[in-house]
Design a protein around this nucleic acid. Structure first.
Length: 504
RNA sequence: GCCGCGUUGGUCAAGUGGUUAAGACGCCUCCCUUUCACGGAGGAUACACGGGUUCGAAUCCCGUACGUGGUACCA
């Protein structure tokens, strides 16, 4: 039997760290076993549906290199893949459950539910549930006569269908990561399966869709663990128990103070979304990992090892290696705190190990948007190779590669001034002449005449190197200064020295 | 409150009854470097607590504490 796994995002929340990692593990597992990776959209909550939010998810997946085999945009044999387009499907299963006595109609209005919660609220039980004791006191088909129910249904009185949790049963299942987990049904409430607007809740939809789409393995966040007994019972009541997918509940990714929230990004200065995410309600724009300057390879890598490792000391993995080595039994049970410093380290490592031509492609947009001319690809690659050790995020290349293409606009004159004098000025004036006369423009020659002249003038070369660096770079960073001179060329080197001399 | 899940250095983590308790990030020191980095060599820091079981427990069991998730006609 082929392996089929699915990722089922709600399109309204953006794709954050935890989400991407869930997709990733699903994807890795599917690919490792030569199966299909399916993306299904959970858009049953119409009130929160946002235009364009679904596209966002697919753009993120594309950037990450996690292309689905089946999805609303990729197509597939089990279409449609949007729950809103499958609406009609769910009702009959819910009705079947009612006929079988495993579910019932509930006509309680929102106000009645609120009243119930208020009425039964105590200090020990601040949030009473619609459960076996409460359901006897509510307006539902368990308490009304058949005629009354028929009447209400015929009048189209708004109603939901709730699952009827059995009394005193122990429900258990084996989680692929955590082992056996069990729940007492008495502590689980009668979850709504079909809403008044005819839309299924996640509970019904996930079971029906997983069944119809022949899903074999379902990995989702740990936050779903408490509703597992509801889903388990649905599989059983609908008679599909033998086709039930294997489950794994992934640990949570935490922020610096507990649960990772969207606000943590702004608060602690690191991204939480794969790509820029605009909250439709607040209009707030949150910067994504992509825009922050992360390589997709690094992003995937750091997420993969946040809660999983292969048991060796290896930390850097390509997607191919991950597919090869991933295994669920090495996924952690405990939640992991996200560490931005380590995330940057991964990016740095990937900048160093990525093929130079691929890296160039990723960097160019940043340079272009800073009006740096990137037409000379050979020169660009030479420069990138030279400075990549100094860059942890892609935008760092603007600073570290920029001055090779464009003269610095501001010079850190203050760094030179204290030790500046007439002799040094004279040195550079003569040096310009010698540079202009140089036949072979290369690093060794440039340095030779520099040292010769310094000796002749009785100045330590070290004293002259910093001023020269400031002249060419504008500040105290970058590769060997003579190498910079070689790359930017004779004319530009002389020009920059002359300009700086005028300022001094 | 109740229910579920968890707990190895600041963070990620290896470890499955006998180890000097790996490694990585970060931090500190030194070396390299007449810039900034990279790199190299060192260093500090951990088994939440209390009971068992056992010749022996980070590892197994039970409590407690703490964290986290759920407790919605959200997903």
């Amino acid at each position: 039997m082929s392996v089929r796994v699915r990722f089922a995002p709600s399109p309204t929340g953006g794709l954050h760290l935890g989400g991407v990692r869930t997709v990733l593990y699903n994807y890795l597992f599917a690919k490792k076993h030569g199966g299909e990776f399916i993306v299904r959209i959970e858009d049953t909550d119409q009130t929160r549906f946002v235009e364009g939010a679904e596209n966002y998810i697919f753009e993120c997946l594309q950037w990450c290199g996690l292309e689905p085999d089946e999805s609303p945009v990729h197509g597939g044999a089990y279409a449609p893949y949007r729950q809103s387009e499958r609406k009609e499907l769910y009702r009959k299963y819910a009705e079947t459950l009612v006929t079988q006595g495993h579910a019932y109609y509930a006509f309680d209005t929102k106000a009645e539910l609120e009243k119930m919660r208020e009425e039964f609220k105590t200090a020990e039980n601040p949030s009473p549930q619609y459960d076996l004791s409460i359901r006897k006191k509510m307006r539902n088909s368990l308490n009304l006569t058949n005629d009354e129910v028929k009447d209400l249904l015929e009048q189209n009185i708004p109603h939901v269908i709730r699952i009827k949790m059995p009394d005193n049963e122990i429900i258990s299942f084996t989680d692929l990561i955590r082992g056996e987990i069990s729940f007492e049904t008495n502590f689980v409430d009668d979850k709504v399966l079909l809403k008044a607007d005819g839309m299924p809740t996640y509970h019904l939809a996930v079971v029906v869709d997983d069944y119809l789409m022949k899903i074999t393995h379902a990995f989702r966040g740990e936050e779903w663990l408490p509703s597992a007994p509801v889903h388990l019972l649905l599989w059983k009541y609908l008679g599909w128990q033998n086709q039930m997918p294997k489950w794994a509940h992934l640990p949570l990714i935490l922020g610096p103070n507990g649960k990772l929230s969207k606000r943590d990004g702004a608060k602690f200065g690191f991204p939480v979304f794969a790509m820029n995410w605009k909250d439709n309600k607040t209009n707030e724009l949150t910067e994504g990992f992509k825009e922050k300057g992360f390589l997709p390879e690094a992003f995937i890598n750091l997420l993969a090892v946040l809660g999983w490792n292969d048991g060796t000391e290896q930390e850097l993995f390509t997607m191919e290696e991950l597919i090869d080595k991933f295994s669920l039994d090495r996924v952690h049970v405990a939640g992991a705190k996200f560490d931005y410093e380590k995330a940057k380290w991964f990016n740095h490592e990937w900048i160093k190990r990525l093929q130079i031509s691929d890296l160039r492609l990723q960097i160019e947009p940043y340079l272009i948007s800073n009006r740096i001319d990137t037409t000379d690809k050979a020169k660009l690659e030479t420069v990138i190779e030279l400075v990549k050790d100094r860059c942890t995020l892609l935008p760092d290349f603007v600073q570290h590669a920029g001055f090779f293409f464009k003269a610095p606009t501001t010079l850190d004159i203050e760094a030179v001034k204290p030790k500046w004098n007439e002799e040094k000025k004279l040195f550079f004036e003569i040096y310009i002449g010698k540079l202009n006369a140089l036949a072979n423009w290369n690093m060794a020659e440039i340095e030779n005449i520099f040292k010769e002249l310094a000796t002749e003038k009785n100045i330590k070369p070290g004293e002259l190197q910093l001023p020269m660096r400031i002249m060419l770079v504008g500040a105290k960073f970058g590769p060997a200064v003579m190498q910079i001179a070689e790359i930017i060329g004779k004319e530009e080197t002389v020009k920059r020295i002359e300009y700086a001399l005028r300022l001094l």
